[in-house]
Design a protein around this nucleic acid. Structure first.
Lengths: 119, 119
DNA sequence: TGCATAGCTGCGTACCTGTGCAGGTATCGA
DNA sequence: TCGATACCTGCACAGGTACGCAGCTATGCA
């Protein structure tokens, strides 16, 4: 099986068959970038704290999230804007309060892992 | 249960009990940062491709990884240096070839998720 | 109709990080 | 011993990103 793209076919390999396996394992580039972006959202401690709170506590208001995480309101708002744009959370307006909740199943699965070995 | 730290105890909450739940869900700050760092390693497409290759293919040489991912050698080396410093991978020298493999179970679990919905 | 609260936005700054290039070290074959 | 290969390191540049501040809109209460 020749999975090595033409532009790097002439480069010498150490274990040729493993290179093909590796290319197959990596898969589509778009697929990889999608997951990298997903991980990127969880890579910030503040954002991760927000998501962990939403993961376990259900709909939460912005200012409550700010108190729980020790952030100031604009910082929470900006983080939620990012997460909302990525389709990870959604906000529902009730009067002058906006309650956010988690909507992405893949992210939920990842959060379960890092909530598992907690205290 | 009063889990709100003293420095933000006077701020008004929308749903007081949920704030406490959220703080409990977030847990220790060091724990959150540890996981954020872990996710941060997977947040780069190139690094993620390297890890996916190592996850499924076993010990791989640096230049083979470079061919499989389309990166140049120094880029692979630097990425591996980062992953090695984080304790995610380890390299064993055999002659003039260094083969790397995955050693972190938490990371392995995360990789399994994004390898699951592949092609 | 004021006035406080809840949330959002834009801007500027400082910082981090990925990337490529040049050069260095160590091992193997001729 | 000479050269090629495999890998590593340091440095500089560009790009992205988090963070704080100031100001804005909108809702609810008195």
């Amino acid at each position: 099986m020749h999975l090595v793209p033409a532009d790097r076919a002439e480069r010498r390999t150490i274990d040729g068959h493993r290179v093909c396996d590796a290319i197959a394992a990596i898969g589509d580039e778009a697929h990889v970038r999608t997951w990298a972006d997903r991980f990127s959202l969880l890579a910030d401690p503040k954002r991760l704290a927000l998501l962990l709170a939403l993961h376990r506590t259900g709909p939460l208001a912005v200012s409550d999230l700010a108190i729980a995480t020790g952030m100031n309101d604009p910082a929470v708002s900006q983080a939620l804007r990012l997460l909302r744009a990525a389709g990870v959370v959604t906000g529902e307006k009730e009067g002058r309060v906006v309650r956010y909740r988690l909507v992405d199943d893949d992210t939920r699965l990842l959060l379960k892992h890092c909530a598992a070995d907690g205290p």
